[in-house]
């Protein structure tokens, strides 16, 4: 097989937050959440981003879709530098890049039923669809995440954690994205549900040719889904490579420490 096309290129990305401690005449060092990191994500593959809390992994994911402010660096989607686009100019890329969040309890609007949750992105990105076409799409979306069609009229509180995460995935799929940023998508779920959602994400990747940036703290889950793993610590990528080589021969002391802390049985 030929070399896969590079979908996303992150170059020297930094995200610094101003520190709010101290008085106004005191100069504060900014919090360097993400500090000069570079990586690429090939089309159709999964790049796993692991690290502990505060390592900057979620900030990295958010910076790509402009949920975090960019301090410096460039983000290329194929050839386009999307890092410099803002507002309306970024809109077409919001359709190509979607995000799935950790907490299925807080990321769905409790006042909307499933149909309106799934229709909203369609109304924005596919304004030409008629109401009946939209409904048809919503049914298809539920089917693709293996939920029954009659769930359309239900509200988020009626679902279990795993079902809500499926709805979150369906919403991300609604606009037919190419790249999905999965921010701790299975961390809040029970192990049996976690296994189902991981399998679903992998099935969808095969069917639809999706590309994932998979952010998680659980090394075993990241190993399961990733073609390449990036290990982050204190805003930096300390190690990158194939899952098998990172797990069997970790080079960086931080990766070694992380691996030795995982209880095995």
């Amino acid at each position: 097989m030929s070399h896969p096309e590079t979908l996303l290129t992150v170059k020297n990305l930094s995200v610094h937050y101003p520190s709010r401690l101290g008085w106004f005449w005191q100069k504060n060092e900014p919090k360097r959440a993400v500090n000069d990191i570079s990586f690429t994500v090939p089309r159709g593959k999964t790049v796993g981003l692991v690290g502990e809390s505060g390592s900057g992994k979620s900030t990295t994911g958010k910076a790509i879709i402009k949920l975090s402010p960019l301090t410096s660096g460039q983000i290329f989607y194929k050839e386009t530098n999307i890092g410099v686009l803002d507002g309306q100019a970024f809109q077409p890329w919001r359709k190509k890049i979607q995000m799935i969040f950790q907490d299925p309890y807080n990321s769905l609007n409790p006042r909307s039923d499933v149909q309106s949750i799934l229709s909203e992105p369609l109304e924005i990105h596919f304004p030409n669809l008629t109401a009946s076409e939209r409904e048809e799409r919503c049914v298809d979306l539920l089917k693709s995440v293996k939920l029954p069609a009659d769930y359309l009229r239900r509200y988020p509180h009626e679902f279990s954690g795993g079902q809500r995460q499926r709805i979150g995935i369906a919403r991300a799929l609604a606009v037919q994205p190419e790249l999905i940023i999965c921010d701790e998508p299975v961390s809040a779920l029970d192990v049996s549900v976690q296994a189902e959602v991981v399998n679903l994400l992998q099935d969808l990747q095969e069917q639809l040719g999706l590309t994932y940036l998979f952010i998680a703290h659980d090394l075993a889950v990241v190993e399961q889904v990733s073609d390449e793993i990036l290990v982050m610590s204190q805003g930096k990528i300390v190690e990158a490579g194939k899952p098998s080589s990172i797990l069997s021969r970790p080079q960086h002391p931080y990766t070694q420490k992380l691996l030795s802390a995982v209880p095995r049985f």
């Binding site: 192990v191 049996s192 976690q194 296994a195 992998q202 075993a220 399961q224 797990l247 691996l259």
Partner: peptide, 25 residues
């Protein structure tokens, strides 16, 4: 048995994770 089988383990990547059967859920 089902619960233990669901857990992804380091260094033992599988094509698919095992899931609980319907009656076990």
């Amino acid at each position: 048995r089902g619960l233990i089988a669901c857990i992804p383990r380091l260094g033992q990547r599988r094509r698919r994770l095992t899931t609980l059967s319907e009656e076990m859920k």
